[in-house]
Design a binder for these strands. Structure first.
Lengths: 214, 214
DNA sequence: TGGGGCACTTTACATCCGTTAAATTAGCCG
DNA sequence: CGGCTAATTTAACGGATGTAAAGTGCCCCA
């Protein structure tokens, strides 16, 4: 049974880790350095988060909980409006949040390739209950209210939208290619609008559960 | 001065590493396990590649050298044709190659966040002399021959195209969301075509080198 | 006042990666 | 046959991560 730690200690580690890794860009900071910055032992950090990757997961969730951008997104998803402006508002909130969470989000994506627990957390954030979930809800409402072309598949459209919004897109355009944030946002917005006009791209070209058929 | 190793030994390590990591999905395989699979010592592997990340870089380059998809891309870039079909052919070659190289390409992308040497190799592959370079060459020829709208910026259009084609897009749609390869390819093709119709998305909305101006 | 429990620290160890140094092996040439 | 060289192996070490166990201090309660 893992040892308990107090909420104060846990918060102190998360804050120190965020400051060191996200604010100062020290993504390479080791467990020893993070613990020292938080004023605790390595052991306490391992008690609180299990391992370095678990700390990253907790950092992302902690930031999600604190961020009013995520609150904006949540409010839109539980609302009932179902037009293109709703989709835009949701995407705008995510794009406002993305630069803030980008450093840890990228590390999370990295670790999710090889760590099953991080993979689950990553999927939860982006797929299951996260970004894609929100996109799909809105697109389903749009479909039901006639704001989406009848042959558009909301689930697959959500998939396509997600692929435009992941941290890697920010990395390519803003970090590596030097794009201004507003140009990045405009490009995501423009591509999303283009997708709304292309139901053919969300049509699944063959049944997926046909046994014996390729 | 690093110790030399024979080309046969180097090839044996690359083949064993590819089989273990890309074919068997053991991206988490350690240096000891990879060396054992190749029938050499850990030390020999370190002599050949420097470290685990250097091995990943060499694996990707080795696959590039062996792949006729990369040869197809290269042939298109050094050619002179300058229409949409040329762009499509180039992108098709890359998308044919992507599933083959994906396991190592993803590891390369993620390791590039924290390893400067891998970052250089990643940038070389995708940006400087790689995928983006090829895209930009073709788009510049298209611009010069009038096959691109006059106010389209070939460099920035290349940036946008690149963001649609990176391994992360494959991961989201094919690996995580279960898309069929041909649907993935159709979505990339459709989004690229949509971009060709949207010169406004490649316009840089403000001068970048204006001192004192936001 | 003393004992128990909780949260945290300290200590020690195993494993892996990467590095350095030395030894070994095999093949070639005079 | 012996010497030399290149390639490879073996050995040892330091740093980092993660794990386990024991120690410490503080607070609370009988």
């Amino acid at each position: 049974m893992p040892q308990k730690i107090s909420p104060e200690t846990r918060a102190a580690i998360l804050d120190a880790a965020w400051d060191l890794m996200a604010s100062q860009g020290r993504l390479d900071a080791g467990v020893g350095e993070i613990a020292a910055a938080a004023g605790v032992s390595r052991q306490t950090l391992f008690y609180a988060f299990g391992n370095r990757a678990g700390l990253l997961v907790a950092m992302a969730r902690h930031q999600d909980a604190k961020s009013n951008h995520v609150e904006r997104m949540r409010a839109i998803v539980v609302g009932e409006s179902a037009d293109v402006a709703t989709l835009h508002a949701f995407v705008d909130a995510w794009l406002d949040y993305l630069p803030e969470v980008y450093p840890v989000a990228m590390q999370l994506e990295t670790n999710s390739l090889s760590d099953p627990d991080v993979a689950l957390a990553w999927q939860d954030r982006f797929l299951g209950e996260g970004l894609r979930f929100g996109l799909e809800r809105i697109l389903e409402r749009m479909s039901a209210s006639g704001a989406l072309a009848p042959d558009h598949h909301p689930g697959r459209l959500a998939d396509l939208c997600l692929a435009l919004l992941v941290p890697s897109a920010w990395r390519i355009l803003v970090i590596e290619c030097g794009w201004r944030v507003e140009d990045f946002v405009a490009s995501r917005r423009g591509l999303l609008d283009a997708l709304l006009e292309r139901p053919d791209l969300t049509r699944d070209k063959a049944p997926r559960s046909s046994p014996g058929n390729a």
